[in-house]
């Protein structure tokens, strides 16, 4: 069984995001970039499935600038077998990403596609669902646990009410949630091996996909700061404030 795992290069989770002074976006110069943490979980799951003998080949795909190749190398160091970089310097919105991935799926014919439920930069949470729609494949989103069977996959999902297990026929799309697994460290021997693994390059144009944005960002602003709390002298005062000022009672 062949597996496609999608990885996005984003601002590192631990970096404090700053808005550019002119409000045109967030500051990306000299900022540490890493693999989207949800995608890292997707890669880990893919590698575990391979280690369990359920998967024979893992292909890692990323869409982005040249440096997104480093993100693919990380996936290769974690255990993916080869990579595909769809190179573009443009801002690619979820629908365009899904269309590109649909093309890659058409060429690669994987039995399973795993990706993060969302990327921590735009938090869109759309690509997996859109890809499922474009391909007409079943989807198991917000995966907490996956179990691969014969031609099928059971995905236990994190939903508002708790957990829900869905059975999907392969080929299918799975998007990962935070508790699915804990990604491994990339070991030095594997990092060195990863350098020799194949990494192909293509582009949206070659795949025939128009990535021009459909949305326009008008302005980017910092969220308002949290207001300072107040101390109250008595329970009566607290109740009064909750009733009158906060309006919650």
């Amino acid at each position: 069984m062949k597996l496609l795992v999608c990885v996005k290069r984003v601002v590192d989770f631990n970096v404090k995001i700053r808005v550019k002074p002119d409000g045109s976006g967030v500051e990306l110069a000299n900022i540490k970039m890493s693999m989207n943490p949800f995608d890292e979980i997707a890669v880990e799951e893919a590698v575990r499935l391979k280690e369990q003998g359920k998967v024979t080949e893992i292909v890692a795909v990323s869409i982005g600038p040249q440096q997104a190749g480093e993100t693919i190398r990380t996936a290769l160091a974690m255990g993916a077998d080869r990579g595909i970089l769809v190179k573009t310097d443009a801002t690619v919105e979820p629908l365009a990403v899904a269309k590109i991935l649909a093309k890659v799926v058409e060429q690669e014919k994987p039995d399973l596609v795993i990706m993060g439920k969302q990327a921590i930069d735009d938090d869109a949470n759309q690509t997996g669902q859109m890809l499922a729609a474009l391909l007409g494949w079943p989807q198991g989103t917000f995966a907490f646990k996956v179990a691969v069977g014969e031609g099928s996959i059971d995905v236990t999902r994190e939903v508002d009410g708790g957990l829900q297990t869905v059975g999907l026929k392969l080929p299918a799309i799975v998007t990962t949630d935070l508790r699915l697994n804990e990604p491994r460290y990339a070991s030095l021997p594997n990092i060195m091996k990863a350098k020799k693994k194949p990494l192909d390059e293509t582009s949206p144009e070659t795949l025939g996909i128009d990535v021009s944005p459909r949305l326009k960002v008008i302005k980017t602003v910092e969220p308002g700061g949290r207001k300072a709390g107040v101390k109250v002298g008595s329970v009566a005062e607290l109740v009064q404030k909750l009733k009158v000022e906060a309006g919650v009672l």
């Binding site: 590192d12 989770f13 631990n14 970096v15 540490k32 890493s34 693999m35 943490p37 890292e40 990380t74 160091a77 460290y185 990339a186 070991s187 030095l188 021997p189 990092i191």
Partner: peptide, 14 residues
């Protein structure tokens, strides 16, 4: 050295 792990992101470095 016998082996090494190189942090791939800040979370792993921490």
């Amino acid at each position: 050295i016998l082996d090494a792990a190189i942090a791939q992101n800040e979370a792993q470095a921490k």
